[in-house]
Protein backbone atom coordinates (compact mmCIF):
# COMPACT_ATOMS: atom_id res chain seq x y z
CA UNK A 1 0.00 0.00 0.00
CA UNK A 2 2.92 2.32 -0.51
CA UNK A 3 0.92 4.12 -3.16
CA UNK A 4 -1.90 4.68 -0.68
CA UNK A 5 -1.38 8.34 0.10
CA UNK A 6 -1.45 9.23 -3.57
CA UNK A 7 -4.73 7.63 -4.51
CA UNK A 8 -7.39 10.23 -4.52
CA UNK A 9 -9.69 11.92 -6.99
CA UNK A 10 -10.19 15.25 -5.31
CA UNK A 11 -8.65 17.61 -2.85
CA UNK A 12 -11.07 19.51 -0.63
CA UNK A 13 -9.75 22.48 1.25
CA UNK A 14 -11.13 23.01 4.76
CA UNK A 15 -10.62 25.74 7.26
CA UNK A 16 -11.23 25.42 11.01
CA UNK A 17 -12.17 28.62 12.83
CA UNK A 18 -13.40 29.69 16.23
CA UNK A 19 -12.28 31.37 19.44
CA UNK A 20 -9.06 30.58 21.17
CA UNK A 21 -9.10 27.40 23.23
CA UNK A 22 -12.26 25.86 21.81
CA UNK A 23 -10.29 22.85 20.62
CA UNK A 24 -9.78 23.44 16.91
CA UNK A 25 -6.35 21.89 16.80
CA UNK A 26 -7.48 18.99 18.97
CA UNK A 27 -10.36 18.28 16.60
CA UNK A 28 -7.95 18.24 13.69
CA UNK A 29 -5.53 16.04 15.58
CA UNK A 30 -8.30 13.68 16.59
CA UNK A 31 -9.45 13.49 12.98
CA UNK A 32 -6.02 12.96 11.43
CA UNK A 33 -4.30 10.94 14.15
CA UNK A 34 -7.28 9.49 16.02
CA UNK A 35 -5.70 10.60 19.24
CA UNK A 36 -6.48 13.25 21.79
CA UNK A 37 -3.73 15.76 22.30
CA UNK A 38 -3.90 16.65 25.97
CA UNK A 39 -1.46 19.58 26.17
CA UNK A 40 -2.13 21.27 22.91
CA UNK A 41 -0.05 24.44 22.52
CA UNK A 42 -1.62 27.57 21.07
CA UNK A 43 -1.57 27.48 17.32
CA UNK A 44 0.84 29.91 15.75
CA UNK A 45 -0.82 31.41 12.69
CA UNK A 46 -2.03 28.37 10.82
CA UNK A 47 -1.32 24.68 10.96
CA UNK A 48 -1.91 22.16 8.25
CA UNK A 49 -3.24 18.62 8.28
CA UNK A 50 -4.44 16.09 5.71
CA UNK A 51 -6.35 12.86 5.55
CA UNK A 52 -7.83 10.82 2.74
CA UNK A 53 -11.46 9.86 3.15
CA UNK A 54 -14.00 8.23 0.93
CA UNK A 55 -17.31 9.64 -0.20
CA UNK A 56 -19.57 7.69 -2.54
CA UNK A 57 -16.71 5.51 -3.65
CA UNK A 58 -14.47 8.48 -4.45
CA UNK A 59 -11.32 9.00 -2.52
CA UNK A 60 -10.92 12.55 -1.40
CA UNK A 61 -7.95 14.20 0.18
CA UNK A 62 -8.90 16.72 2.83
CA UNK A 63 -6.43 19.55 3.12
CA UNK A 64 -7.27 21.15 6.43
CA UNK A 65 -6.00 24.53 7.55
CA UNK A 66 -6.30 24.95 11.27
CA UNK A 67 -6.23 28.61 12.22
CA UNK A 68 -5.08 30.29 15.39
CA UNK A 69 -7.93 31.56 17.53
CA UNK A 70 -5.88 34.32 19.11
CA UNK A 71 -6.94 37.77 18.04
CA UNK A 72 -3.40 38.80 17.11
CA UNK A 73 -3.41 36.27 14.29
CA UNK A 74 -6.66 37.43 12.74
CA UNK A 75 -4.78 39.31 10.03
CA UNK A 76 -3.08 36.09 9.07
CA UNK A 77 -5.95 33.66 9.41
CA UNK A 78 -8.39 35.80 7.45
CA UNK A 79 -6.35 35.13 4.32
CA UNK A 80 -6.97 31.40 4.60
CA UNK A 81 -10.72 31.55 4.11
CA UNK A 82 -10.02 32.24 0.49
CA UNK A 83 -11.03 29.29 -1.61
CA UNK A 84 -12.06 27.02 1.26
CA UNK A 85 -14.65 24.44 0.23
CA UNK A 86 -15.59 23.72 3.82
CA UNK A 87 -15.45 25.79 6.98
CA UNK A 88 -15.70 24.13 10.39
CA UNK A 89 -16.80 26.75 12.91
CA UNK A 90 -16.08 25.60 16.44
CA UNK A 91 -17.27 26.79 19.86
CA UNK A 92 -16.86 25.38 23.34
CA UNK A 93 -20.12 24.23 24.95
CA UNK A 94 -18.72 25.03 28.38
CA UNK A 95 -17.85 28.64 27.56
CA UNK A 96 -20.72 30.80 26.53
CA UNK A 97 -18.47 33.60 25.25
CA UNK A 98 -17.15 31.34 22.51
CA UNK A 99 -20.73 30.72 21.45
CA UNK A 100 -21.56 34.40 21.55
CA UNK A 101 -18.76 35.17 19.12
CA UNK A 102 -20.14 32.79 16.52
CA UNK A 103 -22.02 35.47 14.67
CA UNK A 104 -18.86 37.45 14.08
CA UNK A 105 -17.07 34.32 12.91
CA UNK A 106 -20.01 33.59 10.65
CA UNK A 107 -19.93 37.09 9.20
CA UNK A 108 -16.25 36.73 8.45
CA UNK A 109 -16.82 33.37 6.84
CA UNK A 110 -19.68 34.59 4.69
CA UNK A 111 -17.69 37.62 3.61
CA UNK A 112 -14.51 35.81 2.82
CA UNK A 113 -15.67 32.56 1.21
CA UNK A 114 -17.74 31.38 -1.74
CA UNK A 115 -21.48 31.11 -1.45
CA UNK A 116 -21.02 27.39 -2.05
CA UNK A 117 -18.68 26.95 0.92
CA UNK A 118 -20.18 24.45 3.32
CA UNK A 119 -20.19 25.78 6.88
CA UNK A 120 -20.40 23.24 9.67
CA UNK A 121 -20.96 24.31 13.26
CA UNK A 122 -19.30 22.14 15.91
CA UNK A 123 -20.02 22.41 19.62
CA UNK A 124 -16.85 20.93 21.04
CA UNK A 125 -16.12 19.41 24.46
CA UNK A 126 -19.49 17.64 24.70
CA UNK A 127 -17.81 15.17 27.04
CA UNK A 128 -17.91 17.93 29.68
CA UNK A 129 -21.70 17.87 29.92
CA UNK A 130 -21.63 18.75 33.60
CA UNK A 131 -20.05 22.12 32.84
CA UNK A 132 -22.32 22.81 29.90
CA UNK A 133 -23.01 26.51 29.31
CA UNK A 134 -24.79 26.36 25.95
CA UNK A 135 -27.71 24.01 25.38
CA UNK A 136 -27.89 21.81 22.35
CA UNK A 137 -31.28 23.20 21.41
CA UNK A 138 -30.07 26.78 21.44
CA UNK A 139 -27.12 26.06 19.21
CA UNK A 140 -29.24 23.90 16.96
CA UNK A 141 -31.64 26.77 16.51
CA UNK A 142 -28.78 29.13 15.70
CA UNK A 143 -27.50 26.66 13.13
CA UNK A 144 -30.92 26.21 11.57
CA UNK A 145 -31.53 29.94 11.36
CA UNK A 146 -28.25 30.41 9.56
CA UNK A 147 -28.45 27.34 7.40
CA UNK A 148 -25.47 25.64 8.99
CA UNK A 149 -24.90 21.97 9.59
CA UNK A 150 -24.47 21.28 13.29
CA UNK A 151 -23.23 18.62 15.63
CA UNK A 152 -21.89 18.46 19.15
CA UNK A 153 -18.58 16.66 19.29
CA UNK A 154 -15.72 15.84 21.58
CA UNK A 155 -12.12 15.96 20.46
CA UNK A 156 -11.28 14.12 23.67
CA UNK A 157 -13.50 11.07 23.17
CA UNK A 158 -13.63 11.38 19.40
CA UNK A 159 -17.40 11.46 19.44
CA UNK A 160 -18.85 12.92 16.22
CA UNK A 161 -15.48 14.24 15.08
CA UNK A 162 -15.32 11.87 12.14
CA UNK A 163 -18.92 12.64 11.31
CA UNK A 164 -18.41 16.39 11.17
CA UNK A 165 -15.54 16.15 8.69
CA UNK A 166 -17.24 13.45 6.61
CA UNK A 167 -20.63 15.15 6.47
CA UNK A 168 -18.98 18.32 5.27
CA UNK A 169 -17.19 16.38 2.55
CA UNK A 170 -20.44 14.70 1.53
CA UNK A 171 -22.14 18.05 1.20
CA UNK A 172 -19.29 19.43 -0.90
CA UNK A 173 -19.28 16.32 -3.05
CA UNK A 174 -23.02 16.79 -3.50
CA UNK A 175 -22.35 20.31 -4.73
CA UNK A 176 -19.90 18.97 -7.27
CA UNK A 177 -22.43 16.42 -8.43
CA UNK A 178 -25.09 19.09 -8.74
CA UNK A 179 -22.68 21.24 -10.69
CA UNK A 180 -22.81 24.03 -8.16
CA UNK A 181 -19.07 23.86 -7.76
CA UNK A 182 -17.00 24.55 -10.80
CA UNK A 183 -14.02 22.26 -10.58
CA UNK A 184 -12.18 23.79 -13.45
CA UNK A 185 -12.07 27.16 -11.85
CA UNK A 186 -9.09 27.83 -9.70
CA UNK A 187 -9.68 28.48 -6.03
CA UNK A 188 -12.98 26.66 -5.73
CA UNK A 189 -11.34 24.85 -2.83
CA UNK A 190 -11.65 21.61 -4.74
CA UNK A 191 -9.06 20.15 -7.04
CA UNK A 192 -9.20 17.18 -9.29
CA UNK A 193 -6.36 14.84 -8.54
CA UNK A 194 -4.74 11.76 -9.97
CA UNK A 195 -6.16 8.45 -8.86
CA UNK A 196 -4.94 4.97 -9.56
CA UNK A 197 -6.82 2.91 -12.13
CA UNK A 198 -9.70 0.75 -11.01
CA UNK A 199 -7.68 -2.29 -10.15
CA UNK A 200 -6.56 -0.81 -6.90
CA UNK A 201 -9.98 0.34 -5.88
CA UNK A 202 -10.93 -2.70 -3.91
CA UNK A 203 -7.84 -2.69 -1.78
CA UNK A 204 -8.22 0.95 -1.07
CA UNK A 205 -11.86 0.59 -0.25
CA UNK A 206 -11.01 -1.82 2.43
CA UNK A 207 -8.39 0.40 3.82
CA UNK A 208 -10.56 3.39 3.92
CA UNK A 209 -13.37 1.48 5.49
CA UNK A 210 -11.04 0.29 8.13
CA UNK A 211 -9.92 3.93 8.66
CA UNK A 212 -13.35 5.18 9.00
CA UNK A 213 -14.46 2.51 11.43
CA UNK A 214 -11.55 2.96 13.72
CA UNK A 215 -13.19 5.64 15.83
Amino acid sequence: MSAGPYNYSYIFKYIIIGDMGVGKSCLLHQFTEKKFMADCPHTIGVEFGTRIIEVSGQKIKLQIWDTAGQERFRAVTRSYYRGAAGALMVYDITRRSTYNHLSSWLTDTRNLTNPSTVIFLIGNKCDLDAQRDVTYEEAKQFADENGLMFVEASAKTGENVEEAFLETAKKIYQSIQDGRLDLNAAESGVQHKPSQPGRNTLVNDQQVNKDTCAC
Binding site: R82, G83, L112, T113, N114, D182, A186
Partner: peptide, 11 residues
Amino acid sequence: ALTQGGPGGTP
Protein backbone atom coordinates in the same frame (compact mmCIF):
# COMPACT_ATOMS: atom_id res chain seq x y z
CA ALA B 1 -5.52 34.51 -8.11
CA LEU B 2 -4.23 38.08 -8.05
CA THR B 3 -6.10 39.35 -11.05
CA GLN B 4 -9.06 37.06 -11.70
CA GLY B 5 -9.97 35.44 -8.41
CA GLY B 6 -12.16 32.42 -8.08
CA PRO B 7 -15.05 31.29 -10.26
CA GLY B 8 -17.54 34.07 -10.83
CA GLY B 9 -15.35 36.45 -8.88
CA THR B 10 -15.53 34.63 -5.55
CA PRO B 11 -13.15 34.71 -3.95
